[in-house]
């Protein structure tokens, strides 16, 4: 029986001033380097007649652009597309980088130097927190009053003319408070989904390898394959859900759409 070497928090390697540098942060740097390298290497030879790798990138980008267009509409899609595609590429490369040979085995002072940034809870939390905060800033920028109205629908209380109207307005206030809770739940649910899948995949491989020495060669392969597959799916799901959330928040803050819904209700 081999001892399991699994730790939920990222282990600290060294610190630059007050900032502790963990292995997951180095993993994020590694992921970024891979992305930059592949990006530069493939963009150098962009042409009208595409090379194979260019076709691959363009297929992925096209498919993704369609999804963004469905959520935001064709005009805004071009503006928002880079955010989500970068996010997806980063998560994808981070998830699949376990396939790099030897990189994750480098040990410094008894701790791994690299770790997948998505298998540390801080990573996914950072992604989802950034997205939700950015969505609120954007919505606030578009129309502050309409955006705040989604959470504190005070206007309906003063506009109510009868007792039943007043009760409905109070229920609206409660729903607004629930929306605030929902925004926090969004951050946690997005992050926990990604983190849970990636970490569970790693943990499963570690457990299988820990059963016996002879199980370290052939037996983990299906579980590794499962991890690769779920890493792809989770990168896709994370970015799709963040598109939906961002589109929903921005839709809700656009005054015009509110009037439309009000008309639809009336």
């Amino acid at each position: 029986m081999i001892m399991l070497d699994v730790s939920l928090p990222a282990s600290q390697l060294f610190s630059i001033g007050p900032i502790p540098i963990t292995d997951a942060m180095l993993g994020a740097v590694l992921t970024t380097l891979i992305l930059v390298f592949v990006g530069v290497a493939s963009a150098r030879r962009f042409a009208i007649i595409p090379t194979r790798i260019q076709v691959l990138f363009e297929m992925g980008a096209n498919y993704f652009l369609e999804q963004v267009e469905q959520a935001f509409g064709p005009e805004k899609a071009r503006t928002f597309f880079p955010v989500f595609f970068t996010l997806m590429l980063f998560i994808l490369v981070a998830n699949e980088s376990t396939m790099l040979p030897f990189v994750y085995e480098i040990v410094y002072n008894g701790a791994d130097v690299f770790r997948q940034p998505t298998s540390d809870f801080s990573g996914p939390i950072a992604f989802s927190l950034t997205l939700v905060v950015v969505s609120h800033i954007m919505a606030f920028y578009i129309s502050p009053i309409t955006h705040l109205k989604n959470f504190f629908p005070v206007g309906a209380v003063f506009a109510s003319r009868s007792v039943s109207d007043f009760f409905l307005a109070c229920i609206g206030m409660m729903i607004g408070l629930l929306n605030i809770v929902g925004e926090f739940a969004k951050v946690i649910s997005l992050a926990a989904r990604l983190f849970g899948n990636v970490f569970a995949g790693n943990l499963m491989v570690a457990v299988i390898m820990g059963i016996a020495v002879w199980m370290q060669w052939i037996v983990p392969i299906p579980f590794l394959a499962l991890g690769v597959f779920s890493g792809l799916i989770q990168a896709f799901v994370f970015s799709l859900l963040s598109i939906q959330f961002l589109a929903g928040t921005i839709e809700g803050a656009t005054p015009q759409s509110q009037e439309e819904t009000a008309q639809a209700v009336a």
Binding site: S7, A192, R193, G196, A200, Q234, V237
Partner: peptide, 25 residues
């Protein structure tokens, strides 16, 4: 279907995350 499945899976993942936190932290 795969996206829907991954979203459906999330409650199981939440319980897994909580189990992991109880186990390791």
């Amino acid at each position: 279907m795969i996206v829907a499945m991954a979203i459906t899976e999330s409650t199981a993942i939440y319980s897994l995350v909580i189990a992991l936190i109880i186990l390791f932290v």
